[in-house]
Write a protein that binds this DNA or RNA. Structure first.
Lengths: 101, 101
DNA sequence: CAAATATATCGATTTTTCCCGATAAGCCAA
DNA sequence: TTGGCTTATCGGGAAAAATCGATATATTTG
């Protein structure tokens, strides 16, 4: 776990918002739409982009940055990439802050 | 509490090191030296600078940045400024991550 | 008051981040 | 295989951060 990389990933309003959106996908992304996996497995890039109102390329970059930091995971399925939070990793980060900071 | 500002403050190796040094001042800064307050009230800028090996101006900037983020507090006493961790604030940050992230 | 010491601020340069549009790559359907 | 989606990557311009040396400010001391 690279703390500096994680804090960098978190030090941006939009990226914090992404984590927040992914916290409760059903609330933000009605389950019937395509682009939202069943069983809450993640949300596709396009839907996240719509919520944020930023360019596709920026959102894609942010998602991959959050993934490199280990905070979210991607699942490719056909032409879609579904992103979801890695709750265990996020928990470990929180504990590391509690203990080591 | 501005989360983005706090995460920015934390997203730098040197600033994390400062927080770590201030965690246990007696270990890093023998209490007999001048520039270390009695009763663990903080450590002066010069001693922190020596440990870090960066320029005086950079260390001063980092300390004031950490202070603006609310993670440390400064006490001026004569010609020295003593910095110490704001443990309660740090605790609140950790809890906020645990709950809100 | 003058010199010495500690810290803060200023100005400048280099590096990093933010965010975009254009384009490439992957997948699917006709 | 051609065209239409979805996502990733590339190249770039503007803004912010990193870091320094020089200088200013505040404090103490002779």
């Amino acid at each position: 776990m690279n703390k500096v990389e994680i804090f960098k990933a978190l030090s941006n309003k939009t990226r914090l918002q992404i984590l927040s959106l992914l916290k409760d996908p059903e609330q933000y992304f009605p389950a019937q739409q395509e682009g939202v996996q069943a069983n809450n497995q993640g949300v596709c890039v396009g839907h996240i982009q719509q919520k944020l109102g930023l360019s596709q390329s920026t959102v894609s970059e942010y998602l991959s940055l959050l993934q490199r930091a280990g905070l979210i995971v991607a699942t490719r399925s056909g032409q879609w990439t579904y992103y979801k939070r890695d709750e265990a990793a996020i928990q470990r980060v929180a504990e590391s802050i509690l203990n080591d900071l």
